[in-house]
Design a protein around this nucleic acid. Sequence first.
DNA 1: GCGTGGGGGATACCG
DNA 2: ACCGGTATCCCCCACGCG
Length: 780
Amino acid sequence: MRISFWLLDIDSHKPGPRPEVRLWGIDEEGKRVLLIDKNFLPRFYAVPRNDSSQNVLINRCSRIEGVAEVRPAKKRFLGKELTCAEIWVKDPSSMDKLAKKISNLDVVAGCYEHDIRYTMQYLILRDLPPCKFVEVEVSPTSKPEDAQIDSAYEVTGEFKLSEVEESPELRTLSFYCVIPGKRGSPDPRNSPVVMISIITPDGETICLEAGNDDSELLKDFCEVIKSSDPDVIFGYGTNKRDWMYLVERAKVNGMKLPVGRIGLFPHTSAYGHVSVTGRANLDLLDFVEDIQEIKLKTLRNAADYLGVMPENEGPEILEYELYDYWSRKREVLRDYARHNVRRVRGLGEKFLDFGIQLSQVVGLPLDHVAAAAVGFRVEWFLIKEAVRRGELVPPRKEAFAGSYVGGMVLKPEPGVHENIAVLDFASMYPNIMMLNNVSPDTYIPPDEPDPPQGCYVAPEVGHRFRKEPPGLYREILSELIRARREVKEKLKSLQEDSPYYRVLQARQKALKVIANATYGYTGWVGARWYLKPVAEATAAWGRYYLRSIIAMAEEAGFKVIYGDTDSIFIRYREGVEDLLNRIEEKLSLDIKLEKVYQRIIFTEAKKKYAGLLEDGTMDLVGLECVRGDWPDVARKAQREVVRIVLTTKEIREAREKAKSFIRKYMEDVRNLRVPLRDFTIWKEITKKEYKARTPHLKVAEDLRRMGWKIKPGDKVGYVVVKGSGKLYERSVPFFSARPEDIDVDYYIDKMILPAVMRILKFVGVKESELKGGGGLEAFL
DNA sequence: GCGTGGGGGATACCG
DNA sequence: ACCGGTATCCCCCACGCG
């Protein structure tokens, strides 16, 4: 029989002599099904030292224990054709060992693709995209007795992409755990999970609560999951924290934690994601990490930023207060947990479409792709496409991280400007790579002569790339960009509120993310396709094109006020369209009039400016007010000053307004008439060992002494208090300072004044005018 | 012994 | 565990002065 199947999760096991791939998913009727494929073995390639020994190689390999079959194969490696042996392996878990053994044979130059997991080989070789309907021939088989599914089948045919583009209706479950620590971070050996709030697939909210211990709670949690049988589980911070904690607690209680569609425990797997067999466990923090505008990645902030729930809704309880609320204000804690699980679900709804599309594009299962860093998302996309093209996948190797010169940044013309146009190249780096066929497989090393078809030569650095045939990057980038253009075209004909619109919107975003990260990927030492000249040449061409458009703009009589990497800022006037056309014609690169600022202000610094668009929105770029490591007192003050300067017609009037605002604001700060949290400075702990003494490291030490486990990736919030000595000696955790201890002079002199003066000095304000409120200092 | 200036560490931004 | 370019703060130490 033939079924439609949508892949949610994949795993493998080995019940007998042959391994099995298990595909967990949903059929077109909405049945939860398990497909079992007993006819797939993994394979890798052995490349002989020279062509003549291919037969010898095949013979030698065939006789090795654990090899199922050896076939001759023709492949390409970095553009070079080669013949090799395709070695099929009986037991996936022995592939590495086998490859190592074969690598050591005297007739073998090297082995490839043994480092690609069995399940990923399956998806790629069988052309099975995750999160997409496919049709496949199957035969019914008996359900594994402990598997929670409607039916099981054995795969008997090939997968064929289905016409159906929609996703099935997924059952989602959201959960939020409350885990108080008596003193600092909770320890699973002695601190129980006290509450789990859940929103089931039916929309029912359940709030589980611990009794004397959490064994009932954990049992009930598993029971809710089992009975509501979700396809997707949403949580926040669950990959790094909650799941591990729940598993540890289960072990302490001598229990299992059977939350999957089979198996007794969730387990940590690739990219640090926690795998719940048969379901997709998604940690929404993984998506929030990619949103740079959210500085402090709390559930509350993320939900607020994304319009899921205002930050002031529901009680706010800080981590160190949880234990107290559990002991004495439990009703508030329940309310808190209920609000937070709603936040989790809201975020899940925001990100699910994107996750699904990313999974389709990249080819990694949904839960993997969500947790994978950008580099790995790009890489799996490349791996899938390379295999499809018969190109061997390079192994990951230790490489020396040689640095190279990147993009070009112009010194801005400081001051206030009006009517400024921004011209920028559309997807500059991807287009450069396509245009000049920049790719690891088209690169010509210095010792090789020019090929007959000719080559592109990068400016400044001189790296050469074959004109023909098209390289891997040219192929995959043009495919990504073509697909995205097609999706964007289709979007135009759809209603913005239709579900399909949301799907396509997510799809074009997924395609863009991958295309835009490809240049960065080429310069990543850890990349399988890392090749410094590829990144170096791309950047060199970028500088060349930027210089070209600067010259063309100046030739046309425009003054270039600023520029960064792929853009220039010029006065907007007659002739801009003309300039754009001439640039496109000369350079064969898309360039656009990106925006026009009514007014824009630059300081002397690069990468920092504030502009007012025609529609009244403000762009704040690089300034202190967009940086998460400045306290809100300084950020708010600067932001308001910028707003005044940009929106007040007369500069003279703006100056006076800004002055009186800042004077008053500083008075408010001095008298603590601003929210206390606006003094907190947040900084990330980025590593284990430090050379320097800094405020945030000293505070991290304080917190550790208090029992908090501070790890790289954590942010510490501190305030500066009055007293003598170094700044770091006067920095304390934000929650342990009394308002009257705060060193308001520090905040005014070192944070607020510098931040606002950087703007105000360009409208004629002197620092002395702000300090004394027009007093004596003004005359000094 | 004390103030200063510059180098370097650390962080987070831009494109 | 994506790149290089950049600003900014703070710490620290060499240096000059007395």
